[in-house]
């Protein structure tokens, strides 16, 4: 099941981190923003778009992981307290082989690939991240999905003693998310274990997180400890907190605004103080791959 999706750009196209930094430094003085946004227009075939990953420092220092604080730099400061070894994932519900799976045993059976994905936050900023991980479908196959299962529910680890942000009721802890089974089985849906070939930093959801590149970032739940197959739509944290603003699907969609801000454009991170906004793409640029999943659905109602 692995390798069902190939990057438009291969490993060879990933700018080495050091060279990337140099380029950024040079461009910073020349108005990097205009260069980064150049030659881009909405609806353009994304194959032509050069996906330049953000650099490591951007990716690990700008995170939403409210269990470690609501500031963007809080997770980078506080997440070192999280114990990620040993780690196991409980897979239960409508599966043939339920149980607690040790992370090491899972990884021994999975094929790790690099996937360079766009990452679009619901707050209208974006990054490009070179993830390492395996297809969620492979993990689900391992546990054996029963035919009556229709949805997959996910849960983030909840350890108040290691997670200072959980002292505040910002959200109803633990963080939970969910996907429809066909979304979960889609070749783009990844369980990430690394970035830039390095282990996933704690603030980015170590040791293993979901990545669903055509949905807003909060769907890509971090530090997963439980995966439950079910036949009814599972509750999701942001939807529980504010159902008017955050739907179950939360597909990236420039035509459906968040009630408090427009989703038509986004600001790519890494462009400094004068970064230009660029148009947000339908399904975050993965329309060709995923539009069929939602055929006939009213995406304004099912936001």
């Amino acid at each position: 099941m692995a390798k069902r999706w190939i990057n438009d750009l291969t490993q060879a196209d990933v700018t080495p981190e050091s060279a990337f930094l140099n380029r950024r430094q040079i461009l910073a003085g020349l108005g990097a923003s205009t260069v980064i946004g150049a030659g881009f227009s909405a609806g353009q075939a994304q194959a032509q778009e050069a996906l330049k990953p953000n650099d490591w420092d951007d990716i690990i220092n700008y995170c939403n992981y409210y269990e470690f604080g609501t500031g963007k730099d809080d997770p980078a400061k506080n997440a070192h307290t999280l114990t990620t070894d040993p780690w196991s994932v409980k897979i239960d519900g409508m599966v043939e082989r339920p149980g607690d799976y040790a992370l090491g045993d899972i990884l021994a059976k999975m094929t790790i690939e690099e996937r360079i994905y766009r990452f679009r936050c619901v707050e209208a900023w974006s990054m490009v991240v070179p993830w390492n991980g395996f297809e969620l479908a492979d993990l689900l196959e391992m546990a054996g999905v029963k035919p009556e299962a229709k949805y997959v529910a996910f849960e983030t680890v909840y350890r108040p003693e290691e997670m200072p942000g959980t002292r505040y009721p910002v959200l109803d802890w633990p963080y939970v998310e969910g996907l429809r089974l066909d979304e979960a089985m889609h070749p783009l849906t990844l369980m990430a274990t690394g970035i830039y070939g390095k282990p996933l930093p704690n603030q980015n959801g170590a040791p293993m997180r979901l990545v669903v590149p055509w949905k807003y970032g909060f769907k890509s739940i971090k530090s997963v400890v439980r995966i439950t197959l079910t036949d009814s739509e599972p509750p999701t944290s942001w939807n529980k907190a504010n159902g008017r603003e955050y739907g179950f699907y939360s597909n990236v969609n420039p035509t459906v605004d968040h009630p408090r801000w427009s989703q038509a454009t986004e600001r790519p991170l890494g462009g400094g103080l004068f970064a230009r906004r660029k148009p947000t793409l339908m399904f975050n640029g993965y329309e060709k791959e995923v539009a069929a999943l939602y055929e006939g659905m009213d995406l304004t109602k099912n936001f």
Partner: peptide, 15 residues
């Protein structure tokens, strides 16, 4: 700070 990276990865929102 915003011009020199002192306000982090996303200086616009921070400022």
């Amino acid at each position: 700070l915003a011009l020199t990276g002192g306000l982090g990865v996303e200086p616009i929102k921070a400022l």
